[in-house]
Every structure is written in structure tokens, then in C-alpha cells.
């Protein structure tokens, strides 16, 4: 059961990511990203992280991607054009990506022998467990994130405001 679920949603995630790359229109890419994120939410659940799965759906697939789609629609960017502005991206970047993948994969494969298995019966990290740590040990960082988000909101407003002459 676990294996099946993992394979299905891993496949979804990969396919979504691939689609993100292949689509020419930003709105299609955004929708593909939502697929990826939703699949990841399921995978989080499989790994026993129920709170994160919910947060993933609400924060990422919900809030952030809605923001993305809004912006895409707002700016009304059409299909992206093929431009060749970066020589380095082709000559340096892609070999680097291949090397990156090779290194990561080989490292994971070498180290993975020592790791255990993941199964449905592993038990779940409950929201209660999480909140106990979050609100007790890490209360201050948690509160600081709220300040961070507040500042981000202010920044976003300041940046995106229509330039009415005085900014």
C-alpha cells in the first residue's frame, strides 16, 4: 500500500515538475507546480508529518500559488520567447546540473544503505507533538516569523504600489 502510494505520488511530483519545465505559458507552469506541491503533501503524510501535509496544502498549494496565479494573470505575460541571452547557462550550467545530480545521487546511494525503511505503521508525528516543541522550545523564533511576515507584507505593499509620483 505504502509503496503504491509512494510510487503514484512520486510520479505525480516528477511529472508535474517536468511539465513545469516544458510548458511555455506561465499559468500552465503554475498549475503544474500546484500538482507537485499537492503530491508532496501526500508524501509528507506518508512520512508521518500530518501537520506539514496540511500546511503544505494550505500555505503552498493554497496561498503562495494563488499569489503566483494572480500575478501571472495580472501581468498577462504571454508565452515565453526563446531567447539566447546566456551563454554560460548552457556551457557551464547544464554540465553543472548533471554533476550536481550525479553527486547527490551517488552520495544518497552510498549512504542510503544505512537508512531504514518507511512504512505506514511507523506512527505519526501529531500536531500536538509538534506544537509542544514549537510553542515551548522554539517560541521566540516562531514569534519572530510573524514579525518577518509582517515586514514582508509591508515590503510587498511598498514595492507593488502604483508609482504615484512620490516613491
Amino acid at each position: 500500500m505504502h509503496l503504491v502510494l509512494f510510487l503514484i505520488f512520486a510520479l505525480f511530483a516528477l511529472a508535474g515538475a517536468a511539465n513545469l519545465l516544458l510548458q511555455k505559458h506561465p499559468i500552465n507552469s503554475a498549475l503544474s507546480l500546484i500538482v507537485v506541491m499537492s503530491s508532496l503533501a501526500v508524501l509528507y503524510l506518508l512520512l508521518g508529518a500530518e501537520f506539514l501535509a496540511m500546511a503544505q496544502v494550505i500555505v503552498y498549494a493554497g496561498a503562495i500559488m494563488v499569489l503566483f496565479t494572480f500575478v501571472v494573470m495580472l501581468l498577462n505575460e504571454g508565452r515565453e520567447e526563446k531567447t539566447w541571452g546566456s551563454h554560460a547557462a548552457r556551457v557551464v550550467g547544464f554540465p553543472a546540473v548533471v554533476a550536481l545530480l550525479a553527486v547527490l545521487a551517488s552520495a544518497i546511494l552510498r549512504a542510503g544503505r544505512h537508512y531504514g525503511m518507511v512504512s505506514l505503521s511507523d506512527g505519526i508525528t501529531t500536531t500536538q507533538d509538534l506544537s509542544r516543541v514549537l510553542f515551548r522550545d522554539l517560541l521566540l523564533p516562531f514569534e519572530l516569523t510573524s514579525v518577518l511576515i509582517l515586514i514582508a507584507i509591508l515590503g510587498a505593499v511598498a514595492l507593488a504600489r502604483k508609482d504615484d509620483g512620490n516613491a
Binding site: 500500500m1 505504502h2 503504491v4 512520486a10 545521487a105 544518497i108 542510503g112 531504514g116
Partner: peptide, 11 residues
Amino acid sequence: NTPVPADWYLL
């Protein structure tokens, strides 16, 4: 209930 190796997730 077939388990999945953890490194699959990492991959």
C-alpha cells in the same frame, strides 16, 4: 504494507 526505503524519498 510494503515499506519503502528512505533513500527513495531522498532520491
